[in-house]
Design a protein around this nucleic acid. Structure first.
Length: 190
DNA sequence: AGGAAGATCTACT
DNA sequence: GTAGATCTTCCTA
């Protein structure tokens, strides 16, 4: 198992979003390892993207989008924490939202965190997967490129086709398909 | 003090 | 599949 390096995230957000599909999201919790395969992502840009948290300029809660690629960027919407990874070319702004994972390890712990029993309903949405993995604002800014992090992303061997569509739930979207997903996966958010 | 938000749950057609 | 209620965090004034 190989950790994705910082250079992986130093590219256009949509490239990173598409390439994160099939990778493994790993969460260390109380000596246990909770793992899932990323099956759905979305790319977000900076000042030119009306759906982006960075659209209205830099402030305290979104400053991570300007900073080092490979850091965790977390914010809250409707009582849900959403997990992003900072991703952009040098000097630019951007992040990738992780929208859904397919649970592969630590499933019992995830069920307890979510209080549901159906695996298909464990982490098939951005707010659901943070609950399943017990992720919140306290992890803001940590690097996902280190094995010692509580959250990191590793390479993983799978075969699949990539699908893409408009972003979900966005009131003002760009004229481009910026949502990426594994075709045929049963663990997508819709 | 007021309002908006990249969502979720439930209940329905 | 869609519609409506729900609610915390953080912005703007």
């Amino acid at each position: 198992m190989e950790i994705l390096e910082k250079s992986f995230y130093e590219r256009d957000p949509k490239i990173v979003a598409a390439n994160l599909l099939g990778k493994k999201l790993i969460r260390r919790l109380n000596g246990e390892s909770l793992e899932g395969v990323i099956v759905e992502t979305e790319a977000y840009y900076g000042l030119e993207d009306p759906a982006s948290r960075a659209y209205k300029g830099k402030s305290n809660y979104n400053s991570a989008m300007w900073e080092e690629p490979g850091r965790v960027f977390i914010y809250n919407v409707h009582n849900n924490w959403l997990l992003n990874v900072v991703a952009h070319e040098p000097g630019k702004i951007g992040a990738v939202l992780i929208r859904a994972i397919e649970p592969v390890l630590g499933i019992e712990a995830m069920k307890l965190n979510r209080m549901v029993s159906n695996i298909l309903n464990l982490a098939n949405g951005p707010g659901k997967l943070t609950k399943a993995l017990k992720i919140d604002k306290s992890y803001y800014g940590i690097m996902v490129t280190s094995k010692h992090s509580e959250i990191f992303i590793a390479d993983h061997q799978t075969k699949f086709e990539i699908g893409c569509s408009r972003r979900i739930g966005v009131s003002k979207d760009l004229d481009e398909n910026l949502r990426f997903f594994i075709k045929g996966s049963r663990f997508l958010s819709r």
